[in-house]
Amino acid sequence: MGHLFADRSEAGALLAERLHGMRDPIVLALPRGGVPVAVPIVRRLGGTLDVLVTRKIGYPPTPELGVGAVCEGGEPVFDTKLMDRLGLTERDLSEVVARELRELDRRVSAYRGERRLPPLTGREVVVVDDGLATGVTARAALRAVAAAKPGRLTLAVPVAAQETVRSLRAETDEVVVLATPAGFRAVGQWYGSFGQLSDGDVLSLLEQR
């Protein structure tokens, strides 16, 4: 299977073409991978770019497996079907949640300092990530933004698993996705370059906007 995108920046430029009708949106990128996707979108559309910090809640024996997520300003969201299959309760994950909340607070401080998110009420808000596998992190982000009562809420990603897109449509006004390929295993498989980003990379990209 070939790559769909050379890198996150190219994916963001292509995604911007699908979002071109928006006016003065607030674009909230999920760091770290969503930030380089969001930068070309804001360059094309204008509006305001900021980060919306989320953290995956991992299954303790295999932390890479996300069983939930937490977003700044929101409550933890869990994949209840997966937790049932694994025999997990929310109490079993209390230490993991506490650890991820500490890291979330650290990243919010690193990326925004004392600055707060812009007011979202009544605004057109676009949540951007580099792709959706299980979608639990995006779900936590969408619910946190929805609580602020935006005028319109859109989730925009270059690539996603088909079932995940279907499951998230109820959380937002629109899901804009460029590709939902079969054989979806991980987001990175659809990018030629999918390197890990540092906090410094995120800050540099935010300054470039």
Rank of each mutant, 00 (worst) to 15 (best):
A148W: 05
G47P: 06
G58C: 01
G33F: 07
R102M: 09
R106C: 13
V35T: 10
L45I: 06
V67T: 02
V96W: 01
P25E: 06
A146P: 03
D24Q: 15
L65N: 03
R106N: 07
V126W: 11
E72D: 10
V37T: 10
P31H: 09
G122N: 09
A38H: 07
E100N: 03
K81S: 14
A11C: 00
L120K: 04
E100G: 10
V67Q: 00
C71H: 11
M22N: 06
V128K: 04
T62N: 14
R91L: 10
L49I: 05
V96D: 04
S109Q: 12
V51L: 12
V128Q: 05
G21V: 09
L93G: 04
V51S: 01
L153G: 00
F78K: 07
A98T: 14
R8T: 01
R8H: 02
P76N: 12
R23G: 14
S94M: 09
G87Q: 05
T48E: 12
V77M: 06
A138L: 08
G21F: 12
V97G: 06
T62Y: 13
A69M: 09
D130M: 13
L153C: 08
E64G: 11
L45W: 00
R115L: 14
R106Y: 02
T80Y: 05
D50S: 13
G66I: 00
A146W: 08
G66M: 04
A147R: 13
E10S: 08
A141V: 08
T89V: 05
R116F: 01
L101Y: 02
L45E: 10
T62I: 09
L49V: 04
G87W: 02
G46L: 11
T137Y: 08
T89Y: 12
V127F: 14
V125M: 14
G74N: 06
D7H: 07
V37W: 03
L19V: 01
P25C: 14
V126D: 11
S109W: 10
T89C: 06
S94T: 12
A141Q: 09
K56M: 13
L65Y: 07
L88F: 15
R44F: 04
K81I: 15
V145S: 07
P119N: 15
A147K: 15
V136G: 00
T89S: 02
A140Q: 03
T80S: 11
L120M: 10
P40N: 08
A29R: 03
E90I: 15
A69N: 05
G58E: 08
R18C: 00
E95R: 12
